[in-house]
Every structure is written in structure tokens, then in C-alpha cells.
Nucleic acid binder design. Structure first.
Lengths: 331, 331
DNA sequence: CTGAAAGCGCTAACAT
DNA sequence: ATGTTAGCGCTTTCAG
């Protein structure tokens, strides 16, 4: 069995309170005492029990990053994974552990769902169950929303400006001289879908270009579906010379279909994606896309969360990050 | 503040012991009592405090997945992410939470590193610090190694058969008639590197083919480095007609260079990768590669871990999964 | 089947 | 600066 404060106290002759302090607030203990205590600790291979500590401090030094099940796969998700990576680093930097999951709740034997209260704070990515978030806030557990927003008092939200991103992308294609531009729109949440569509449409309007509904497709944002859809489009003839794809996965699926059909990118068909995920660097030619700095999103979300954990009220703003066009080889 | 068993006990007239049982072992309580207790719980919005429970049961229902810092990025890593995804699902299925991290330890004020004992078990992916793993086992925390092995009593290890995979890959190229085959080898751990190299070499030997050291390159396994390296190779002339790349990232980086140089894949140069990561499906043509079922790896590792957590001794075998060739368009 | 009581290992007033 | 003491919320003997 591993040793406890009591063993150390007995071994070094100080009280368990002093031993506790030597680990929790070292500066509150005399150098001499510290030295002796650390020596005993080393000798007896002691380390504080974080559970017991959490029991009294009501702090676990754990935070959670929750991705809605609909957005599975969670970790493989090209959009969320760099954000998650940043959050992990931010947490570790503060000596916090990061919990990741889709189910922040637990099923009680009475068949009620209830949240597991072992988190000092949680970041929700994408869609969220309203009841869950409310339950957390009712227990005064800090919450931050990522890539989603809700007008709730003191709830910080960090998201991309989807409208502005779509405008950038479409304008870029117009500037390159395209007059027939198609849209391949992923079936994301209503908010995201509408914002990106409106951005696309408003640019066509301002440029006096037609919106040909034959070339506006809504689809599951997977490689395979996008590939199949583009294959169909290419078969139909009269195909646009450019497409705005509302994420990189769709764009890359479309690229595969175009290249396999023997058409050239960007000479025959130009493409713009969205997210600047790793996919855009993997393909040849590299994908022109819209970047919303994921490190920045992750960092801001973490900072907001830790600010709330450290006692501050949540400055419940909705932060909307401006996207930026990254030009590569597909336009 | 949220309510505790005491509030429930007071509200429903039973003792706190009975309330506790109603949630921890429902079958040990009469149906009548259960009903009343659950009713009070619902009314008072009670949920068990997992920290307090962990304090006495000495079980947190948390497991950790630790990736060595050298293998960062952790989550973005194309090889580990599907494994991690599986582990997450396996954990959730058992009502366990998953922590992920690179630092499973904490820095004590006495400048000693010590593990945070809040995990019921941990899976280490890739390289591991020997002291850390020993410390965990000394505290009788179950450990499983993934994609790595050590001959330690009762330590389960799950890894790919790297030698067999390299043999498969190289034989495939030989069978396709290639006689000048290059190697682009990632700088992985010594174990992995050697096993894959030996597999490659043994096939060349058995086929009576030369090993041209000019075309055996060791490199950081990133897109950019592989791209640059292949660009150099193509410039030198006398380039092999096929390459075995020891992971998909390298292969895809090489593909980019080859396509940009205007050479055709596979007609001019054929490629085989390793891992069957999502990258192999993203590129056009699809990458022929060696698959080691990541879901299976994750599942086996989880099962081993939970078996140990549930009291069994670790059947400390080294499980070596047989790889399989997935043929796509690059050969 | 239920209740009383003793902790789990630690921190946080409050004294000294 | 250090010690004393009273819990944190829960589970778990041990009785009844």
C-alpha cells in the first residue's frame, strides 16, 4: 500500500497539517520543515492522493472536452482534432488533466441521466444537449461553447464567422473570373449551414451571377459521398467551372472524382474548401481553403474556461473569429 | 449547492446507508425503499458524488491513454487516433471516463515527479519512460503497452508485427516485377525501425535483388520532409521504380513530389505505405498500404486493461497482430 | 432488509 | 510557523 500524510508525519516528526502544507502551499512552511518532510516523502515513496484532496477542496483539476455524438468520430474529426490538441496542451500546462468524451453524463440505477461531477469545467464542441449544459451550470460548473453559440448569461462561446468565410471563398472564385459557381454544402448544424449558404449567395448576388440550383448540393460531409456526388455532376454535363465546398473533406472527395475523370484542377474545375484541415495539405495540388485558426480557437476557449474556474465570472461574450483565405493549388 | 445522501435520507426517512445502497447496489434494497429513495433523489436533484465514492472504493472509473511526448501531436497522429477512438468507445461502454495526455505524472513541489493516482488503469502508446511504468505497477495500477513491448511479468503488450508487414509490402512490389526498390524509412523507435528494415532486406535477399544504399533513406515521418526527400531523389536520376515507405505520411509526401514532377503513379513509380491511415484513402490514386487493424488493437488493449482492473491478473502476453496488404492505386 | 458508526486521506479554520 | 480538530460525501462492516 502506498503511504499517506500520516506516515510522513510520523516519520518526520511534524504534524499531518504541516505535511499537507508542504505539498499544497510550500511557502507556508519553514525551509527546515520542508526539507525534512520531502526527505521522508522520498523515503516512503509518498505522493498526495488527489482524490482525497479533491474531496475537500472541491477541485479535481480535471476539465472535459465533449464532442456531440453526432459529430463522431470525435478524435478523427479533421476539424476538431487540432482544437482538441491545443486544449490538451493548455490543460497540461496548468497541471490539469483532460477528459474527453461524448457522454458527460452517467446512467443512474434509477434510470435517470445525471452528470458526473468530477470536472472543474467543460468545453462543448459543436452541438450540445440543452438540458446537459443547463444541469452543469446549475451545479456552477463553468462551461464554454466551441463552434456553436447560445445567448445565455455568462456563457462564453467561440466560433468561426461562417458567413464571412463563405464570402471570402466565393469572392475569391469570382475574382478568378468564374461565372458559374456550384456549391457543395455539408449537412452541418442549421446555424452553420445557413450562415455559409447566405455568404455564398450574397456574393453571387453582388456579382450579378445566377444561383443555379442544379449545382447546389447538400450532402453528408464525407469523402465517399462527395466523391460520388461530384462523379454524378461531371456526368451531367454543363458543369460549373468552380465549386465552393463547405469543408475540406467534401472538397477532397470532389477532387478525387475530378482527377479520376481526367479533368485538370484548377484549369478545368477550381475548388475552394473550408477549415484548412490537414487534408488540404495532403492532396496534390494543395487545396485552397478558408482557415479559422484552430490553435487560436482552442486557446481562447481554454483561457475563458480557466478564467471561470479561477473564480472569475464568465465574460459571456460570443467571440467570432475572422477566417482567412489560404490559397494553394486548386484555384 | 447540490444535495447529498444525507438530504435524501432525511427526505425519504431511510438511513443514509440505505440511500447509498440504492445507488451502489440497488438489488440489496427492497423495491419499496428504492422507489421512495429514487423519488426523493429526483425531487432534490441528487446525484452521487463520484469523488466521495472513489475516496472509499478506491476506484475512480477513469482510465488514461498516454502518448509519449515525442509522438506529438497526439490526437492528430494518423496512426494513433483510430486506436484512441476505439479505446474511448470501449471505456464509455463500461461507464468509464477516458483521460488522455502526454504527462501522466505531476511535478511535486519537492521537484520529484510522481504519478497522479486517479486512474484505475493506463494504456501507454508508443515509447514509455521505464520509471513511470514501474511506479504505476508498484502502486498496482494496471498497465497495458500499445505498439511497444517489454518483457515484464504480467505486462500485456499489443503491437503490430512490423517485420511481417515490411515483408508483405516488399514482396508485393517484387511480385509486380520491380527489381529496383527504394526504402523511405521513418525515424521511429529503434524496435520498429529495425523490424521494418529487416523485413525489407530479407525480401530483397530472397529475391536476389540488390540493396542500393543510395535509395535507402531515413527521415522524419512528415509530409514535408518526405516530399523534399523525394524531390531530391527524382532529381538525381537513376531513381528506383518503386518505394516502400514505412508509413503512410511518408508515402503521401512522396506522392506529392512525384505528381508535381509530372511522373505517373504507379506507371513510373509505385509506392507502398504502412498503417492504412485515412491518408491512404484521401489521395488520388488511393495508396496501397499495410493495414494493422487499429480497432482491433484498441479493443484488445482495452479488454486486457479492463480484465486487469476487474481483478484478474494480467495475462502478460505480447500480442503481435498480423498485418494485411491493402491494394489500392499506387501499385 | 435496514441502521449505526467508523473511517477513506486530505485541507482549512482556529489556536498556539 | 506549526499543531488540533472537524469535517468533505460516501461505503462498509457489524448488528439488529
Amino acid at each position: 500500500m502506498s503511504s499517506t500524510i500520516i506516515d510522513i508525519a510520523r516519520d518526520c516528526g511534524y504534524s499531518k497539517a504541516t505535511v499537507s502544507r508542504a505539498f499544497a502551499k510550500p511557502e507556508a512552511v519553514s525551509p527546515k520543515a520542508r526539507e525534512k518532510i520531502y526527505a521522508s516523502a522520498k523515503k516512503l515513496n509518498y505522493a498526495p492522493n488527489v482524490i482525497a484532496r479533491a474531496m475537500v477542496t472541491r477541485r479535481t483539476e480535471n476539465i472535459a472536452f465533449i464532442i456531440h455524438e453526432k459529430q463522431y468520430p470525435a478524435i478523427l474529426n479533421p476539424f476538431y482534432s487540432p482544437i482538441l490538441e491545443t486544449v490538451l496542451q493548455e490543460a497540461n500546462r496548468r497541471n490539469y488533466s483532460l477528459f474527453i468524451g461524448a457522454r458527460q453524463d452517467m446512467l443512474l440505477p434509477n434510470n435517470q441521466f445525471s452528470i458526473k461531477r468530477q470536472m472543474d469545467g467543460v468545453i462543448f464542441a459543436g452541438e450540445v444537449d440543452k438540458p446537459l449544459i443547463q444541469a452543469l451550470r446549475a451545479q456552477s460548473i463553468p462551461v464554454v461553447l466551441l463552434n456553436n453559440h447560445w445567448e445565455l448569461e455568462g456563457l462564453p462561446c467561440v466560433e468561426a464567422d461562417h458567413f464571412a468565410g463563405a464570402v471570402e471563398a466565393t469572392r475569391h472564385l469570382v475574382r478568378r473570373g468564374h461565372t458559374r459557381i456550384g456549391l457543395m454544402a455539408g449537412l452541418f448544424s442549421k446555424q452553420v449551414r445557413e450562415a455559409r449558404f447566405q455568404g455564398f449567395r450574397s456574393v453571387l448576388n453582388e456579382a450579378g451571377l445566377p444561383l443555379d440550383t442544379r449545382f447546389v448540393k447538400e450532402l453528408e460531409p464525407t469523402l465517399e459521398v462527395a466523391d460520388a456526388e461530384m462523379t454524378r455532376l461531371l456526368g451531367e454535363g454543363d458543369c460549373p467551372t468552380a465549386f465552393f465546398c463547405t469543408n475540406d473533406t467534401i472538397a477532397v472527395g470532389a477532387m478525387k472524382a475530378i482527377l479520376r475523370a481526367g479533368r485538370r484542377i484548377p484549369q478545368d474545375i477550381a475548388l475552394v474548401g473550408f477549415d484548412d484541415s490537414y487534408l488540404s495539405r495532403v492532396v496534390e495540388p494543395g487545396l485552397t481553403t478558408i482557415r479559422v485558426d484552430p490553435e487560436r480557437m482552442g486557446r481562447i476557449a481554454s483561457e475563458k474556461l480557466f478564467a471561470m474556474i479561477d473564480g472569475g465570472e464568465g465574460a459571456g461574450e460570443i467571440i467570432r473569429l475572422k477566417p482567412e483565405l489560404i490559397q494553394r493549388g486548386t484555384t
